[in-house]
Write a protein that binds this DNA or RNA. Structure first.
Lengths: 344, 344
DNA sequence: TTGAAAGCGCTAACAT
DNA sequence: ATGTTAGCGCTTTCAA
């Protein structure tokens, strides 16, 4: 026999389909006699009844799904975010459609379009650039939109992001306390809030510690990749810039830095201390294990889910943004600088 | 104005909704006059019409979605599989629901139930154990089921898996050619096809190379984790087992092996060569970079998608299973053994 | 080649 | 407290 429908349950229980609907929905169960409700629930279970979500969505115009837009699932940053989001939204009865953009604007447009076609009830975007017209458009529609990990310039779009400024401050304090004075920042793309905020915080930190803001100590990388990190450090060494420590804009840049140092026969931390950002998987297995700022990625996803649920349940409510606290994980890649400034 | 429906398009184009439906569906477009079809397509586009997938599913009883069951998305093995699957299925108009089981039977049952509730048209399972009644049940239903990465005992359930036997043979040949004779295998769980097949292949390889099958050279690990790998190697060293190389059942076991060697002051590859399995991300950044058997995870997902589509389109067709070829990635963790057998 | 009509399974306004 | 009714948007059989 085919999958039983609500009518089948109604027939078996000797009531009208509408009664079954009311009895099965916890929201409306009190509208129906307790005994009948019991009977309905039992027959539903005995028949192995499962509501058809498509029929429900067609009727209610709410799909109980949300869309998550990320650059690339194989970037180790995102799986924990996805799980945090799914775990919390799943409890609330929502499913999550995950789409990848590979940092390509066209693919992003197509991805968002595919979510639109699926009638998602809300959007979570991990692809925000500071200036991002597509997101502005989306936010103008009548659907909750939430940014994770990165933000846009616009303060009115709610977001869940790491407290980049505090993270950089932690890392810088650590380096300064170790005795470093010539600290390089491998800055991420300045079109991204993460890249931008971390550079900004770096400059603040220099000021706070009474260190000069020397322009040659900042390298802007075009992307958050190993390759960009390696190139940046190679350039610094080629230019004979003196430094004893590197604060990388993220872990991949730090890994690239490791590569460049090794290639030039420099040792970490003996010659150069390195700090990363994110504490992605296996950063503790590098050689040396990487000191890095830990971002609670799972919590970013979970908190995003909570905020989105608020927006879904009370659309009129004023949107909030959340900064999640970070912590510094000290490992062997940072140590006091060599007695004298490294001679290049 | 609200999202336009098929009726809106029909009205604007001056035709019956049924005609619009026929014109919009490439399958039935030839049933309608070419000019009318053109006109319908244009008005649909100009109105920004998007078909409602829920209405379609309700009518056709096909959801155009498949379910993917994996242990844990944060295991770096799975993101590439997910992407391969999504990329190919997406092209065919299917969406993928991903659910995690965390290697817990109850959660697996709940996960599969959630997919059932969503009316998925097919299942892809990455959680197979050799003996797996739940999968047998699922396969008995009238829905395509496909296994990836691991298989069950039953040969009649189609699967896409790595050619573990060949992979082990490659690794063993490499070690033997380097001169190793006392080679340890850190075997994965024997309840999983991967753990089982690789151990089996290890024994075959010993035989092929005329090496003795010494029982003390095999350690069965309870799980594919760093911790299990470290414990296994600690035990070998405690027991004074002599060996010059380790063939780990997967990369995580190899990483655990690294940890144990370092803890005991042994050096890789000077004292012990190590080979991993999977070539997951960052294995090239370990110290030393890990020689490992590369598994084409993206291709596993992509091939699974193709096979599943076959099953979806031609249910009567005989199911096939596919073994994907592996390759050995030689890095610095393997070298000829020290002149004399290591004295313990 | 196009139109008419029915119905997929569910919910919600209204009636009793 | 329960039943009646209509309809969400689409596809598909049948009729013209």
């Amino acid at each position: 026999m085919n999958r039983p429908t609500l009518r089948d349950v109604a027939q078996a229980a000797g009531v009208h389909p509408a009664t079954v609907s009311r009895a099965l929905n916890p929201q409306t169960r009190q509208l129906v006699n307790a005994d009948t409700a019991q009977r309905v629930l039992r027959t539903a279970r005995s028949l192995g009844y499962r509501p058809n979500p498509f029929a429900r969505t067609l009727k209610t115009a709410r799909s109980a799904t949300v869309g998550l837009v990320i650059p690339d699932l194989t970037n180790p940053l995102f799986p924990p975010i996805v799980r945090g989001l799914e775990d919390v939204l799943g409890t609330a009865g929502y499913g999550v459609w995950v789409v990848n953009t590979d940092n390509d604007e066209q693919r992003e447009a197509a991805a968002i379009e595919s979510l639109r076609a699926r009638n998602v009830d809300g959007y979570v975007l991990a692809t925000a650039r500071l200036n991002h017209p597509l997101i502005d458009e989306l936010a103008a529609e009548n659907v909750p939109v939430l940014l994770v990990n990165r933000r846009t310039e616009r303060a009115d779009i709610p977001s869940v992001t790491p407290d980049d400024a505090s993270g950089v401050a932690l890392a810088m304090r650590h380096l300064v306390e170790l005795g470093h004075r010539r600290i390089v920042h491998l800055a991420g793309p300045q079109s991204l809030s993460t890249g931008y905020q971390r550079l900004r915080a770096f400059r603040y930190a220099l000021h706070d510690h009474g260190l000069p803001d020397a322009p040659e100590l900042v390298v802007e990388c075009e992307s958050f990749t190993e390759d960009a990190g390696a190139k940046a450090v190679q350039r610094l060494l080629d230019d004979d810039v003196e430094f004893t420590a590197v604060l990388a804009g993220n872990d991949l840049l730090a890994v690239g830095c490791y590569d460049a140092l090794e290639e030039r026969g420099l040792s970490c931390p003996a010659d150069v201390s390195v700090v990363g950002f994110n504490d992605t998987r296996f950063m503790d297995k590098l050689h040396p294990p990487l000191t890095t700022v830990r971002i609670p990625h799972y919590d970013i996803g979970a908190e995003a889910a909570r905020l989105l649920l608020e927006g879904l349940n009370q659309p009129q409510r004023h949107a909030r943004s959340v900064l999640l606290p970070l912590s510094l994980v000290v490992r062997a890649s940072t140590a006091p600088p060599a007695p004298r400034t490294r001679a290049t």
